[in-house]
């Protein structure tokens, strides 16, 4: 078992023929992901990477049964691409694009709110269920199959955590990169909830960073559920200064509640296993499961 994506996912790539889309679609296909085609408006009817190109996501849904979409469309058009996928009946949308205007994301998030769809991202590395489907840009070989769910706002830090989990003798059920923007589709709490409901996931690694209140919300929810599965938590940015944007648009300390220290305190009080050093994620997970 796993969450969001698996071997039955039929993936359509939006922004298929662009350089990013082409590169990562090829990598996904090589990994074994079931990529059924792509969308580039105006290029419908062509073939790319031995797969059909469609003008619209609806065509991809109707003709090849796509149910998962991954978006590499440039920032100016990405929110539109998200809404198109939702309208076409796609069930899981993974938006990789970095730099989407916040106002566009407010609109897109509102648009999908009443539809039966899960958006992951934007500005994220994607979702991977090892051995089944890689719907993202992560290095697939780092992720080995197993029973630990990973949820993270960051890309390379997710790979770091996965690598440690694997080296600690464990593996990964699914890893979800939720993204580092101020407005994202799936919150930390929603990702954790997916793992709590997944019978094959035995432990969860939750990686956050400064800014926003997602980690606190997730921690309080976990405690309210009675801590059904162990969660190891880490917050990046303990040394970040206030008021400075640290790379990610969402990674900025605004008030007293969104510092790393405040989040770690809440997580600890809610019964999570909080690590101070990012080097201790894997070992701590192994210890609490032992």
């Amino acid at each position: 078992m796993s969450v969001l994506v698996n071997k039955d996912s039929k993936v359509v790539v939006q922004g298929f023929t662009g350089s990013e889309g082409t590169f990562h679609a090829a990598q996904m296909i090589e990994y074994g992901t079931h990529v059924v085609g792509g969308v580039t408006p105006g290029k419908g009817g062509q073939t790319h990477l031995d797969r059909p190109v469609f003008n619209t996501v609806a065509d991809a849904v109707n003709e090849v049964g796509a149910n998962v979409s991954i978006i590499f469309v440039p920032p100016a058009f990405a929110a539109d691409a998200i809404m198109e996928a939702a309208d076409a009946g796609i069930k899981v949308i993974v938006a990789i694009t970095e730099g989407i205007p916040t106002k566009d994301m407010v609109t897109a998030k509102e648009y999908i709110r009443t539809r039966e769809v899960t958006l992951v991202g934007p500005n994220c590395p994607g979702v991977i269920t090892p051995g089944e489907a890689k719907v993202g840009i992560m290095p697939g070989f780092v992720f080995k199959q197993g029973k630990i769910g990973i949820v993270s706002k960051s890309g390379t830090l997710t790979y770091e955590a996965a690598d440690q989990v694997v080296k600690a003798g464990l593996g990964i059920s699914t890893a979800i990169g939720i993204g580092g923007d101020p407005i994202i589709g799936t919150s930390t709490k929603e990702a954790v909830e997916l793992f709590m409901n997944d019978p094959e996931t035995e432990g969860i690694v939750m990686i956050g960073e400064i800014g926003g209140n997602y980690e606190a919300e997730a921690a309080r929810w976990i405690q309210a559920q009675g801590n059904p599965k162990p969660v190891v938590g880490f917050i990046a940015g303990q040394t970040a200064p206030k008021g400075k944007r640290m790379g990610h648009a969402g990674a900025i300390i605004g008030g007293a509640d969104d510092t790393a220290a405040a989040k770690m305190k809440i997580m600890g009080e809610c019964g999570l296993h909080v690590v101070e050093s990012p080097a201790d994620i894997g070992e701590t997970m192994a210890k609490v499961l032992a």
Partner: peptide, 11 residues
């Protein structure tokens, strides 16, 4: 990567 960069500062 921004997240790993912050984590490295913490280290």
């Amino acid at each position: 990567g921004a997240g790993l960069a912050m984590a490295t500062m913490d280290i």
